[in-house]
Design a protein around this nucleic acid. Structure first.
Lengths: 200, 200
DNA sequence: CCGTCCAGTGATTGACCGATCACTCACAGC
DNA sequence: GCTGTGAGTGATCGGTCAATCACTGGACGG
């Protein structure tokens, strides 16, 4: 804010947050193996070695980025306000597509993490992330009155649609489809042009 | 076969095929950026430089692997025999899960590719692959009598479920879920233990 | 003013990886 | 048996990248 003093040196917490944010953007753009710590540092406005002051290895930084991306998704859902006559899946799904413009890098990061799931630690983090989201949705459906089995089936379908949207946006699918086809993939009428998602 | 002469030198075509197969397995296990040409060559039983006799760059090899994986999926569907009272989506979906034991590496490769599309050429290949599969399913539904818009919506849901299965198997999700939860993700009763998918 | 943290960097290193090149050797046809 | 062609390799190179280390300099308490 304007009231904050112009700092020449940041606090460690602020710097750490900036690094994780830069990591989300770089990992989303290039994947875990493709992103370099130098590019992350450049984006965060620091030197490359300083990244390792906060995260002992690149993998630790990747795990922190994946966790923050998942936290932000669930936080969006926690803040979501249901509309009249809208089921819980409607609220969560609408929130998901409405937040795409601001959450698109997190979305791409979550999908890109699958590329490096050869690493057992990252695969474990991905499983944990899946379970968190899946059970969050299932619990919401059960609270709404669904039977457990029905809620699980609905949650799986919901997660599958989310994956489809993530994958489609990550590869820039819109440009390869007819408008009606694209609408069948992602019900996101006011999404920014996909090209914007790939800019620097 | 036993009738084939024991060859000390392979034909170029056979060698090329072996390299692409090895590439599918390595890329599926480690992702595009993570897999090394040395590991691919080792798996194919040749020296690392010889890979570049067939594919001028690693990227060309990756594109060939992705195309073969997609070809095999569509070939499986072409060969599929419908059962009585089964809709076309039922046939395709059943074929998909039935062929998982033999097609699991192709499946993992396709998902990893989705996740590592920072390279524009690979992203373009992924879009082409998506469109091939999506339109194949849509056309089959239209032939079955569905209206175009309905077929597109069904095809999107179908593709989404496929992505979910791919992602779940790729990260070894089964071990992190209760059996009923896993059944809601992947209706694959007789699938091999997930650990088998990650063996060497 | 001064000493002491701590934010932050430049220089470097060791490992790895994609790609190149010069070379060897097996076989088929003559 | 000689030779041309193509299969196949060892050695290596240029570049990149994660990670390390020694160092600098500014802010703040006393």
């Amino acid at each position: 804010m304007a009231t904050a003093p112009a700092r020449t040196r940041w606090t460690a917490d602020d710097r750490r947050e900036a690094i994780v944010q830069a990591a989300i953007e770089e990992f989303a753009a290039s994947g875990f193996a493709g992103a370099t710590t130098a590019a992350i540092a450049r984006r965060a406005g620091i030197s490359q070695p300083y990244v390792f002051r906060f995260f002992p290895t690149k993998k630790d930084l990747a795990l922190a980025a994946l966790e923050l991306a998942t936290d932000r998704l669930l936080a969006d859902w926690e803040r979501a306000v249901p509309r009249d006559g809208e089921g819980v899946l409607g609220t969560l799904g609408r929130t998901y597509v409405e937040t795409i413009p601001t959450r698109r890098t997190e979305l791409m990061l979550r999908l890109r993490a699958h590329a490096e799931s050869g690493d057992p630690d990252i695969a474990a983090a991905l499983r944990a992330k899946f379970v968190r989201v899946y059970r969050y949705v299932t619990a919401a459906l059960v609270r709404e009155g669904h039977a457990q089995a029905d809620a699980e089936a609905e949650a799986a379908r919901f997660y599958a649609r989310g994956l489809l949207i993530d994958a489609a946006l990550t590869i820039g699918l819109e440009s390869a489809l007819e408008p009606s086809e694209w609408a069948s993939i992602c019900p996101c009428p006011d999404i920014a042009r996909i090209e914007d998602l790939h800019g620097a």
